[in-house]
């Protein structure tokens, strides 16, 4: 039996909003550690990895590991039926062919119950090496979202370069070009507004903005986003997931293969 209860159901709604347009079908791996998911987009250009730790849930029971394969747009449609303040409980019996979602409104006697069909998916898991990166940047997630949205008006790709204590996002296209330069902030009264840059070596790398704009759909999950870059390897865009108390619940990590000059 698998059962996971989340008082702040809105977190699960936000997670689905952040992945459903990138990945159509995926499997949740549920173990005593928590729920996790790894999937590539259909073009195999990007990869998304989600982790929700067991102790972040308000109740979590997983007698034996289960894989819950599902259509994410179906799950997202069902989660839209939950209110933002609802408690969400996921339930799956061992060897069942569906998952049950129970939504409970706060201070009300209303509960609703939905079922989503499970699918057997041939999931291909990629091993992601845990290596240090040349550049790590932490910045406000809304700023990253804004930069990616603005630069997509100019071109299809952004060139990210980092030198000393600044990071530069540049795009060019038929209409002209655009550049956004961000410098490290000195000290922050509000940590969520700060930009911090740690650089081992300068870097310049290009990425498709279409995917970065998909990743930015995770913005409501976290006030800060972390970008990690090294020469000729995928970019990592990470949003940590915290609950209202600020406790660490897990993360969404997106990996994006670079564009390489011919």
């Amino acid at each position: 039996m698998f059962e996971a209860k989340l008082i702040q159901g809105a977190i699960l709604k936000k997670i689905l909003d952040a992945i459903k347009d990138l990945v159509n079908e995926a499997s949740w791996d549920c173990s005593s550690q928590g729920m996790s998911l790894q999937a590539m987009d259909t073009s195999h250009v990007s990869l998304v990895a989600v982790q929700m730790k067991a102790d972040g849930f308000d109740k979590y029971r997983c007698d034996r590991s289960v894989t819950l394969g599902m259509n994410l747009s179906s799950l997202s449609k069902i989660l839209k039926c939950a209110g933002n303040d609802d408690t969400i409980t996921l339930k799956a019996p061992d060897d069942g062919d569906k998952i049950t979602l129970v939504f409970e409104a706060k201070n009300e006697s209303e509960t609703s119950e939905y079922e989503v069909k499970l699918m057997n998916l041939d999931s291909e898991y990629l091993g992601i090496p845990d290596t240090p990166y040349s550049v790590n940047v932490k910045m406000p997630s809304h700023k990253f979202q804004r930069i990616c949205r603005d630069l997509q008006q100019i071109g299809d790709a952004v060139t990210i370069s980092c030198a000393k204590d600044s990071i530069r996002f540049a795009a060019k296209g038929d209409l002209g070009s655009g550049t956004v330069n961000l410098c490290q902030t000195a000290s922050a009264d509000k940590p969520e507004d700060s930009v911090s840059i740690s650089m081992q070596e300068p870097i310049i790398q290009s990425f498709a903005l279409k995917y970065l704009n998909h990743f930015a759909k995770a913005t409501p999950l976290s006030p800060q986003v972390s970008l990690s870059l090294s020469p000729d390897v995928p970019l990592v865009v990470e949003y940590s997931i915290t609950d209202d108390d600020g406790s660490d619940f897990g993360y969404i990590r997106y990996y994006l293969a670079p564009k390489i000059d011919e």
Partner: peptide, 14 residues
């Protein structure tokens, strides 16, 4: 002109 690479050329299947 730049080429889009694929993510599965960087990370091997487990």
């Amino acid at each position: 002109k730049s080429n889009q690479t694929r993510i599965d050329t960087f990370f091997a299947a487990k």
